[in-house]
Computed example of a mutant assay.
Amino acid sequence: MKTRVLVVDDSALMRGLLTEMINSAPDMQVVGAAPDAPSAREMIKVLNPDVLTLDVQMPKMDGLEFLERLMRLRPMPVVMVSAYTEAGSNSTLKALELGAVDFIGKPRADGMKSMEDYAEELVDKIRAAKGARLRRQSIPRPPLTATALPAASPAPLARAVASGKIIFVGASTGGTEALKEFLMGIPADCPPILIVQHMPEAFTASFARRLDGLCAPRILESQGNEKIEGGTVYIAPGHSHLQIRRSASGYVTELQATPPVNRHRPSVDVLFDSAASLVGRQAVGVILTGMGKDGAQGLLRMRQAGARTFGQDEASCVVYGMPREAFVVGAVEEQCSLDDMAKRVLQAVSR
């Protein structure tokens, strides 16, 4: 049975291009193409698609308003198709909060990615979306502060920061919301945290700013050569691998625009490998929701080097791909739900 896809975009050219790409996959079929939200609503009723691709900017009703109504009245897997702009990235992050499974930028003719590579990424995301666990819209909650921790926690946590504990996190599909939930449970006086989230370079700066406004620690998009300090979260930029490097004054971040690893740049494996080789048992590794296997071998090497390692459980993942691969190879010391992940990681660094 082929995956039935409905394409929604106000551009006839884009509808045609996306339709051609999706239909080129042997396991997919575009059953309809709608130019706006009202047309899409009627087509959903008649065609009952498995997955929707949805433009962010549309006439009559924009993609965000339509998505919000859709997820409330007729939840289904949605992959957003977004422009590579500041406004586009902010709208896309909002769409993921509203329940979209994933997103992809609109194809560009600037040589950044071939149309063949773009088509492969598009159909991969649609496949993952079909099997994804739909998530209800997240409810904002206040960030955790030191005063919100149990009475005995701040002193051990301060010792963990001073002793050089560092947390390394990897995520992909569903990760933007999972990381938000995880970091909302982390206090301002946390050990340093380094994160790789699979995301195009036009989106990582907006993602970091969004998290910084919601969470207690300082959160920034890494620029490279930053001193790694407690109370700070470093997010890999979409154009480079992020890793850790030893310097005369301690650890610093390092960016490398080397070829993709596991088809990704930034790659979780690159970050985890640097943790395994340099930080060893002072590291804590966390792998969250995502498709594929990036991070599994790196997390295994972290565990073999003495690090504590955690994987998100299947029930709380949007896509149980990366955590499953890590669990299968023996990289995960403990599986836990997303709701418990921050607490378990804080307990690990406080010992």
Rank of each mutant, 00 (worst) to 15 (best):
A132T: 07
L70S: 03
M71A: 05
D62L: 02
A148F: 05
P77M: 11
T53C: 11
A87P: 00
K125P: 11
L67E: 08
T53W: 12
A160R: 02
P154W: 06
E68Q: 14
V56W: 05
P59G: 06
R159E: 13
G164P: 08
Y84E: 09
Q57P: 02
D102Q: 07
E121P: 03
L144F: 14
R141Y: 13
D62S: 03
E68H: 14
S163P: 03
S89Q: 12
M58Q: 11
I126P: 09
I139G: 04
E65N: 07
R74W: 06
P140A: 06
D102F: 09
G131H: 13
T92M: 14
L149A: 02
A128T: 01
V79H: 10
D62P: 00
S138R: 15
M115C: 01
A162N: 08
M112Y: 07
L157I: 04
V123T: 15
A109G: 00
L144W: 13
A109P: 01
I139H: 14
G88H: 15
A100G: 11
S82E: 11
D110L: 11
L70H: 03
M58F: 09
P156I: 01
A95M: 06
L67P: 12
L93T: 03
L52R: 00
R159T: 08
A160Y: 04
E97Y: 04
R127E: 04
F66N: 05
M58I: 08
V51W: 14
P143W: 05
Y84I: 05
I139V: 14
M58T: 07
L73W: 07
K113Y: 03
A128Q: 00
S138G: 11
Q137I: 02
S138K: 11
E121M: 03
L149G: 02
E86D: 13
G99K: 02
L93E: 04
A158L: 03
S138I: 15
D50A: 09
K113H: 03
S82W: 13
S138Y: 07
I139L: 14
S89R: 08
A158P: 00
V81Y: 08
G63N: 04
R159L: 14
V81W: 10
D124C: 10
M58H: 11
R136T: 13
P143H: 09
V81I: 15
K94C: 05
S91N: 12
L73E: 14
Q137V: 05
E121K: 00
M115A: 03
V79G: 04
E116N: 01
A87N: 08
M76H: 03
R74S: 01
A109E: 02
L54C: 07
I104P: 06
Q57H: 14
P59E: 12
S91L: 05
M71G: 03
S114G: 05
A95I: 01
K94M: 09
A160M: 02
R133E: 08
L73S: 12
G111Y: 05
D110N: 14
L122M: 04
E86Q: 15
L122R: 02
S163H: 04
S89K: 13
D110S: 09
K130V: 01
L52Q: 07
L73H: 10
K94R: 15
R74A: 04
V78W: 08
R69S: 09
L64K: 07
R74K: 12
L134A: 12
S138W: 15
V161N: 06
A162D: 05
V56M: 15
K130Q: 08
D50V: 13
V81K: 08
L98K: 07
L67R: 06
G88C: 14
D124G: 08
L149K: 00
L67H: 02
